[in-house]
């Protein structure tokens, strides 16, 4: 029986085990570092960090479709916008409670996704990319034209959010901590989803749709459920956008957001933690390092993508070397 397992396969298992052991430590370290950030950096950087968390939420939503379900989704900013405008309108109507806004925004994102899923999921591959692009640009256009509700290109300004025990959050550090807490809840929800039967089935749909059908799984219904979940995550991230900036405008859900989100997911190479790291890297390059380099943030961003695209084989090789070293 033992010769059933080939040597490369056994090494793959060893490497996976080593990774699995290192992962909790890395996660705890990242969370502690993120929570301690306001103690070491200035107010501007804290706001940037909050913006990075918002983009990371949107990147998770995109990765749920791109990395897990195998759908090249470009339109997640549409559901992000549905959530953001819902939260902003709620805030203007006097509902400043942060968690309530978050729930309403997630619901709005999910409803928008349910309504559009039947149109979008008729296609796959490049056609899917184009249809979701259309959804994104139509939503951005609607946000800019429907002045009576969205305030047009001027956008909507909102009062600071409130949290039940603490009242209104006015200091950037407090807003950041709220955003981080909400973001971690979102991460937990996504992690549970990925480990659920639905998560497994979405991964199955990505690998072998005909095989999924032949096993009796309704592929389109499953993908519709995944699309709805991704819409809810995007919507919740929209509420965090409003919490961080106290402002939303059509520019927040425009083409650049869509492109940067998809690229953050691509940086993540199919994994959820990778997408989050990608989003943080994007904000760091574009806004944090970019500002002192006289607005060359986009050039840096381009360099970042090229670096990742070319070094991926290098990192894979390094991982192998590591696995070979740690072989018993």
């Amino acid at each position: 029986m033992t010769d059933l397992i080939t040597a490369p396969a056994r090494r793959a298992v060893v490497a996976a085990t080593a990774q699995r052991r290192a992962r909790p430590i890395a996660l705890v370290g990242a969370v502690v570092a993120a929570a301690g950030l306001p103690a070491v950096v200035d107010r501007y950087t804290i706001t940037l960090a909050g913006a990075a968390l918002v983009l990371a939420g949107l990147a998770m939503s995109t990765q749920l479709l791109v990395g897990t379900a195998g759908l090249p989704a470009f339109g997640q900013p549409a559901y992000f916008g549905a959530g953001a405008y819902t939260a902003a309108l709620a805030a203007q109507a006097g509902i400043t409670n942060g968690p309530a806004q978050l729930a309403a925004a997630a619901g709005a994102g999910a409803v928008a996704a349910v309504l559009t899923a039947p149109v979008v999921l008729r296609t796959r591959g490049t056609a899917f990319l184009m249809v979701t692009f259309a959804v994104q640009s139509l939503t951005a256009t609607a946000a800019s034209r429907w002045r009576t509700v969205t305030g047009g290109d001027d956008g909507l300004h909102t009062p600071p959010i409130t949290v039940p025990a603490a009242g209104a959050l006015t200091s950037p550090a407090h807003v950041y901590w709220y955003t981080l807490a909400a973001f971690l809840c979102l991460c937990a929800a996504v992690a549970v989803l990925l480990r659920s039967p639905l998560g497994l089935r979405l991964a199955g749909c990505a690998g072998q749709p005909p095989r999924m059908s032949a096993l009796g799984h309704p592929v389109n219904t499953l993908l519709g459920a995944g699309y709805t979940a991704a819409g809810a995550v995007a919507g919740a991230s929209g509420a965090l956008l409003v919490a961080v900036h106290q402002y939303v405008s059509p520019a927040d859900i425009g083409f650049e957001t869509a492109a940067v989100t998809l690229l953050a997911a691509a940086l993540g190479a199919g994994t959820m933690t990778g997408a989050i790291a990608g989003a943080v890297a994007v904000v760091a390059c574009r806004d944090w390092i970019g500002a002192p380099t006289a607005g060359h943030g986009h050039a840096l961003l381009g360099l970042l993508f090229l670096t990742v695209a070319y070094t991926r084989p290098v990192t894979a090789h390094a991982r192998q070397l590591f696995a070979r070293r740690s072989r018993p």
Binding site: L200, A203, G204, A206, G207, Q208, P210, R211, A214
Partner: peptide, 8 residues
């Protein structure tokens, strides 16, 4: 040709 889920 075997139709399995290669990444799972």
């Amino acid at each position: 040709h075997p139709a399995v889920f290669p990444r799972l």
